[in-house]
Design a protein around this nucleic acid. Structure first.
Lengths: 198, 198
DNA sequence: CGGGACATGTAAGATGTTACATGATTGA
DNA sequence: TCAATCATGTAACATCTTACATGTCCCG
């Protein structure tokens, strides 16, 4: 199975929602704050070409082509969708939380609509596990290195540690929200709670 | 003034502490959790060559060259230090907090030893300002888009918003720690406070 | 004397950035 | 008609990844 760049996966995530043109994708990146990808044509059009050559997306049946010199609307192929789902399902590994938290959050954001609420909850479990495994390493380093660091250095390190702790807390809360749905403030929809979480 | 990659700046930050060889830099990245840079020779040696060609670092007087086929120890030049300080002093801008928070934290971590405690506090002020300016945009988007998003999508967005809020709170606390230093718990070292920090 | 850490590099390839090129459509 | 927005792309360049190449030193 091909590996894909984060940009390609983000593109696929948006196309899976609905067929779009390159320009529409650019605008989505420019106006969506989820994760910031470049909205530059020099990144997006080549990425779309790669996806097309790989057989993950294709030109969608032209709805109308009123605008521009021909709007080229793209849609994912079944193989593209399959590859996307495989990516979504990947559990969180150590390297993901060190350099690639953005990618993890992108995955989580689309996991429910791409696979299932259950799968989204599972990702949060593996995320919590990885953070729990990584934090002691970080804390040990902080304890050991603090003496030789400036105050601003220590504070920066502390910020990183607190960031991980906050992320883990969020993951725990989010997991609960996903696994035992309960009524929102707005009216008493569904007051009972059926057993079986997770 | 040349623009430099984050890796180059990180390299310069470490060399400024003490002259090191490429291998020592690689190990620093491999064992330091501050920000994760690649410890691959294919990234570091070319980056060092670029810095050398640019005149920002030079071969340090060979202390001893017992090991390997000749350990090449590098040290920053005055021009390198000047460029590094210019980078450190840059206030936080909008793009920095969207895609480049790692770089901001790297800058902050070295600001005290590179410039001054005051300058580190100033960076935190501009960081808080940028976050305060960006949060309403994010929140407005969340309020508007929530209806059309899955629960996991909403939770992911919420995580981003909470992350910014947590970062802003940290910045406020850190700024206080930097601007009014007070004695640490460990013994009454230096009970008096002379004016003038930096 | 063999393996692992020390040590520096190159080559091929993927990806992204910045800047430019091109042209249609729409509203003031 | 002029500018803005829509729309798609390419070219040059920088940077990073992965994999390989090479050789030394030290310890068991």
């Amino acid at each position: 199975m091909h590996t894909a760049s984060t940009l390609e996966l983000a593109l696929l995530s948006l196309l899976q929602q609905q067929p779009r043109s390159g320009y529409a994708l650019r605008r989505a990146f420019a106006t969506t704050p989820l994760t910031h990808f470049s909205d530059s044509p020099g990144a997006i059009y080549p990425a779309l070409q790669r996806l097309r050559r790989r057989g993950w997306i294709r030109l969608a049946p032209r709805i109308r082509q009123t605008n521009g010199r021909g709007k080229r609307t793209m849609a994912p192929t079944p193989r593209g969708i399959a590859a996307w789902r495989t990516w979504l399902r990947r559990p969180v590994e150590r390297p993901d939380i060190i350099g690639g938290m953005d990618e993890v959050m992108l995955r989580f954001a689309f996991l429910e609509e791409g696979v299932s609420r259950r799968a989204a909850a599972r990702l949060l479990v593996s995320l919590q596990k990885q953070i729990a495994a990584y934090l002691p390493t970080l804390e040990a380093y902080a304890a050991e290195a603090a003496a030789s660091m400036s105050l601003s250095g220590r504070l920066a390190l502390q910020s990183g540690i607190e960031g991980y702790r906050a992320r883990a807390r969020w993951a725990r809360r989010a997991e609960q929200r996903l696994t035992r749905p309960q009524q929102k403030a707005a009216g008493a929809k569904r007051a009972r709670r059926s057993g079986r979480t997770r």
